[in-house]
Design a protein around this nucleic acid. Structure first.
Lengths: 208, 208
DNA sequence: TTTTATTGATTGATCAGTCAATCAAAAATA
DNA sequence: TATTTTTGATTGACTGATCAATCAATAAAA
């Protein structure tokens, strides 16, 4: 029973948090969603915090698994970059409840060291997946900048989605990130082996 | 006394929320920080929610005021774009407690209609400030895309800062956003009056 | 005197976490 | 096989703590 209940409770927590849009949900809410008593949730997880930790862990596991699959299917570095982007905006990730859950965990990371650790892992993975493939196309220096920028844009599009103010769709979000990549790939030095010196200003003054 | 107390309480709330990294702070915490009794906070604001609303309103007012000043000092559209970026990463905004507070409100917006309204106003203002100046340099169509992208990148850099995982500094954040702008300004059609037709793919396939 | 500012004390609700008690299945024993 | 024992699953009822909100009372100012 244990593994069944644990999974049911973690799934329920994710759902309840997503619906409610906050981690301020009660064990009762979660237990009810899972169809068990609150006491049982405590029995298996010991504390609410522990259940929440398992919940974010599961969110992360899902994302990694999706990423691995997408990466495996892509052959070239450029294609792998697109794969990373696509996974980030994949339908599951972009569901309102999932976005709400991620956001809630971001806020929680301010207070829970353990939650922060998980989110740092996420941020690093995203950056690293981008960086590894950018390095095949650009100098390390340029690759690092662009990886940082692309990761920020992905996170930003994601968080802006949570407000549903300007409902940019999945496709538009992907296109925007791809445009960023394309533009900077074209502007920055095109080869991994490039001349050193000034950190190559991007074509300034083009448009006054 | 009323205006004095209201301001003290709003400032205290901002501080406590920032320190605590969450809206789950008590009226007592806030009142203590402001040096008054919890009962007085209720007396002037009626409810905790109302105090929180006033708090985010104050955050927004500050940001707008900074923006107005920065915008006034800039002469060209391109300079105004830089001004908008600079204000977003201005030292006040980038202080850990301020970031924590913004994040907390983002999470709250999932649940409070009124909080969401304020954040939507913020998102719109940012987009609009960027858009107005981009339109002077590009077709409306391109300007809209780039405004969306730049706004997302700003928000993304901001939120990533909250994790303190890859502590990108203020200057680096500004540079990254400027690079995005420069690259896309160079790539997209350079004039406001441009031929119509296909939505101008950005130089695709440049770098295989 | 009337109004405003301020607080201590209290209330009512909500929750995380505990615990003793039940129930059922499996294991051991006869 | 029939039985007792043990173990794990599960819950209802309870506790202690926390907190938003209220209110009656006091102090001070107008």
């Amino acid at each position: 029973m244990e593994p069944v209940r644990r999974k049911a409770l973690v799934d329920a927590a994710l759902r309840v948090i997503g619906d409610h849009g906050s981690l301020a949900v009660t064990m009762s809410d979660i237990a009810r969603q899972a169809g068990v008593s609150p006491a049982l949730a405590h029995h298996y997880f010991g504390s609410k915090e522990q259940l929440l930790i398992e919940t974010i862990r599961s969110l992360l596991r899902q994302l990694r698994s999706d990423t691995v699959v997408a990466l495996k299917a892509a052959r070239t570095p450029r294609a792998r970059l697109s794969a990373v982007i696509r996974v980030s905006f994949h339908a599951d990730q972009f569901a309102p409840e999932t976005i709400a859950a991620w956001l809630a965990f971001y806020a929680e990371a301010q207070r829970s060291e353990e939650t922060r650790r998980f989110l740092v892992i996420y941020a690093r993975r995203l950056r690293s997946n981008l960086l590894a493939n950018l390095k095949a196309l650009l100098s390390t220096e340029a690759a690092e900048r662009i990886a940082e920028g692309a990761a920020a844009m992905i996170d930003g599009l994601y968080i802006r989605q949570s407000l549903k103010s300007a409902p940019i769709g999945i496709e538009a979000s992907i296109a925007l990130t791809e445009d960023y990549l394309n533009a900077l790939l074209a502007t920055a030095s095109p080869s991994p082996r490039r001349e050193k010196g000034r950190p190559h200003r991007t074509t300034q003054g083009q448009m006054t």
